[in-house]
């Protein structure tokens, strides 16, 4: 199998079909950079603005809830720290998986990619439980502006993680069956870029929503509203 993958034929032998394929798939481009990777990075630049707008909305509305529950009453920093740690470690598993795919160590690679899936799944489970507890304690998207901004921002991040987990699950399967190998490790690298990006968004969310806002109580004057 490996015989026909390693060496590309010399340039003058390409048919135009292969030429086009080379331009798209290989690094034979004007910039020398792979087109798919460039697409992913540009997409991440776009996603920066997407999450940026949500985070900015959260910050603008920070401390403007007119009624409870307020962040100080509801956020559970120790639990979220654990889920943050889990997500950070999934990124570590991701790079290790990519490394071993490149090295051709199939079993280790599969194991680490499965690790990404598992850790990502644990993160989502944490989030589901967290949402559930918050709702029981009275915080819903409808109840105040903190609930609105919190649930929409973390929910959309959770949706990104879910997409990533599904993607990684297929790549883990691919690695197990031998379709994902050193020569097309780019598939994993691109998925990895997405995964790490979701991770860095969470780094920002954890700081901004959890650590910084965790002491936010009622805004000044709120007691006048409710007697």
């Amino acid at each position: 199998m490996a015989t026909n993958v390693t060496q590309a034929p010399p340039a003058e032998k390409y048919t135009p079909t292969e030429q086009h394929a080379r331009i798209v798939d290989f690094e034979d481009t004007s910039t020398g950079l792979n087109s798919r990777k460039l697409l992913m990075w540009t997409f991440l630049g776009s996603d920066v603005m997407f999450f940026g707008a949500f985070i900015a909305t959260y910050l603008v509305y920070r401390g403007r809830s007119l009624n409870g529950p307020y962040p100080s009453e509801i956020l559970n920093i120790p639990v979220t720290s654990v889920s943050t740690f889990v997500l950070l470690m999934s990124s570590l598993a991701m790079v290790l998986g990519l490394y071993y795919v490149r090295e051709g160590e199939k079993n280790k690679a599969t194991l680490w990619i499965l690790g990404v899936v598992l850790l990502g799944g644990v993160f989502i489970a944490f989030q589901v439980v967290e949402f559930r507890i918050f709702v029981i304690e009275g915080l819903t998207p409808k109840v105040n502006i903190f609930g609105t901004t919190f649930f929409i921002l973390t929910g959309i991040h959770g949706a990104h993680v879910t997409i990533g987990v599904i993607w990684m699950a297929f790549l883990a399967h691919g690695s197990h069956t031998g379709r994902l190998r050193a020569d097309n490790a780019l598939d994993l690298e691109i998925a990895g870029l997405y995964w790490h990006f979701v991770d860095i968004v969470w780094i920002v969310i954890f700081t901004v929503i959890y650590l910084i806002s965790a002491n936010d109580g009622p805004p000044p004057g709120a007691e006048l509203l409710h007697g």
Partner: peptide
């Protein structure tokens, strides 16, 4: 879903939409 992004009663702000 009745969230409060632009609903002043829930703490939201219509000016934020303009921004």
């Amino acid at each position: 879903y009745g969230t409060n992004f632009f609903n002043p009663l829930g703490g939201g702000d219509p000016v934020m939409w303009q921004h």
